[in-house]
Design a protein around this nucleic acid. Structure first.
Length: 195
DNA sequence: GTTTGGATTACT
DNA sequence: GTAATCCAAACA
């Protein structure tokens, strides 16, 4: 029972750092596919130069018009869809970028979608996991909340050790330790020394 | 109307 | 190391 419990929507009513940490170890489900979240990054809606909200009025409008738990999905580098969860709280709004999963279910489907065979190459990056899970621009604005949502999270069955690191692929506010990783996971996007 | 800069990935 | 490929925002 514990392992199939839906992650409380309160998770998305936390500040971005807390929410990003809480999502590590949760299971993301979409259709017949699922995977354990092993890597996330937090982006703050205010004061974070790396966040879309810093330079995009359309992103600020998204935050204003959507509820906590909504999907913020955008096309990066003209090629890859990246998926975030909108979080809203009294201590700050923001996004949690889903960066890597440990594949659990629907692996044949993931292999077909990705055109890759190896388990470690299915969801080991923000652009890869959206392909593997079948998430794209049509999912922008949809909700991660509720058992009937197109995608949703299950609570971790057991406590997970989380480590932090600096965020990947950004040039502004790059020194903030807002990347969260499941300790020891070999399914993360970029292995750093010791990781 | 044109330019610019990306929260990436796969291939050489 | 770097090509691929699209969009929002900024500039003219």
């Amino acid at each position: 029972m514990k392992s199939t419990e839906i992650l409380s929507s309160d998770t998305f009513r936390s500040d971005p750092l807390t929410a990003a940490r809480k999502l590590i170890g949760a299971e993301l489900l979409c259709g017949n596919c699922s995977g354990i979240v092993v890597e996330t990054e937090a982006y703050a809606a205010v004061g974070d130069e790396a966040a879309h909200t810093f330079s995009r009025p359309s992103a600020r409008q998204f935050v204003a018009e959507n509820d906590a738990g909504s999907a913020y999905v955008y096309l990066n580098y003209g090629m890859y869809w990246l998926a975030n969860v909108l979080v809203k709280s009294s201590s700050g709004d923001g996004f949690v970028l889903l960066r890597a999963l440990e594949p659990k279910s629907g692996i044949a489907t993931m292999r077909r979608r990705r055109g890759r065979r190896h388990l470690h190459d299915l969801c080991s990056g923000p652009g890869k996991l959206t392909i593997a899970m079948g998430i794209n621009g049509k999912d922008h604005g949809k909700s991660f909340v509720g058992r009937n949502a197109r995608f949703y999270f299950r609570q971790s069955a057991s406590p997970v050790e989380v480590i932090t690191d600096t965020r990947i692929g950004i040039t502004k506010s790059a020194d903030l330790p807002w990347r969260y990783l499941k300790k020891g996971s070999r399914f993360v996007s970029v292995q750093k020394k010791g990781g």
